[in-house]
Amino acid sequence: MTDITSAPNRIDAFAVARVIARVRDWAPRVHCITNTVAQNFTANVLAAIGAVPSMTVHADEVASLVESADGVLINLGTLDPERRAGIEAAVQAARANGKAWVLDPVKVDRVPLRRAFALTLIKQAPAIVRGNSGEMTALFPAIAAATGTAFAVTGARDSLSDGTRTVLVDNGHPMLARMVATGCALSGLIAACRAVESDSLLAAAAATVAWGVAAERAAIGVAGPGSFAVRVIDEIGAMDTPTLERHALISRG
């Protein structure tokens, strides 16, 4: 078990396990504006870990749901006009009510208009930004300049940082790349962890480790991506402290 920082800000297997345990104990409400492809899977993953998801995108309803939520996810996939309006309302409500929110900048490296929108959102202080290497590279100068924002670059090896500390996570499985919405679901888990943990880097690390360990366990003897999707939800639902402490692969960046 590797300490990334000295107590009380250490990030190790024990620390990430405590965050996951708090998610189960506290059942945080997480409001997600996510893409149509990911809604069902993300909701089921959140419910399995013990959080309470809501998924409304309509701008007239979003503010009330964000106000009563403990965490918020903003995902830029399938960014139609209704979702854009809902996102703007959600971020405004989150900031007005002191709610930490997570940004998942889906495909900003391929869609210039989406990248421009993401850059405006980063100026509004997300607690955490999570994306793949292409997405995060497209936004990196803005993310690096954002005060108080942690970021997670996920892939074969996950790299997470808050500008001062860097954590590498080596949990995961190639099967995650063979199905859609796995990154979106991870962002939902990050929002749930941030709802119960004020250290954004620790929250992101806890979700990333738990997701990676669940994927490793789900892939054992699995027939293919379809059954893997079901089993990874089962493994998130069964995730506990001994499993995380035994399997977490965390190191200093």
Rank of each mutant, 00 (worst) to 15 (best):
S187L: 04
A59E: 13
P105T: 06
R115V: 02
S6M: 12
G212E: 12
A145N: 11
M136D: 00
I49D: 01
W101R: 03
A156S: 11
G163M: 10
G212H: 01
T42E: 06
A156Y: 00
A90N: 09
D162G: 02
V57K: 01
T56V: 15
N44I: 02
I250P: 04
V196A: 04
G253W: 10
L73F: 08
G50S: 01
I11E: 08
R110S: 12
A38G: 05
E135V: 10
R22Y: 01
V213L: 12
A125F: 02
R24M: 05
G226A: 15
G226R: 13
I236H: 06
P8H: 02
V222G: 06
S54C: 12
V106I: 15
G172P: 08
Q92F: 04
N75V: 07
A181R: 14
G237Q: 06
A185Q: 07
I49P: 08
A191H: 04
L79D: 01
A7V: 14
N44D: 05
A93Q: 04
R24H: 10
C193P: 07
P126T: 12
T137L: 11
I33S: 07
S187T: 08
R194M: 00
V16E: 01
E216H: 02
S251P: 01
L79W: 04
A218V: 06
A203N: 03
I11V: 07
D199L: 10
A96D: 15
I220N: 02
E135H: 12
A248Y: 11
D25I: 01
V72T: 00
G224W: 14
E67H: 07
R246D: 14
D240S: 14
L119D: 02
D3S: 15
V111C: 08
C184W: 07
R252I: 05
G86F: 12
T2L: 13
V62A: 09
P225G: 03
R130V: 13
R18G: 12
L201P: 01
V37S: 11
S161T: 15
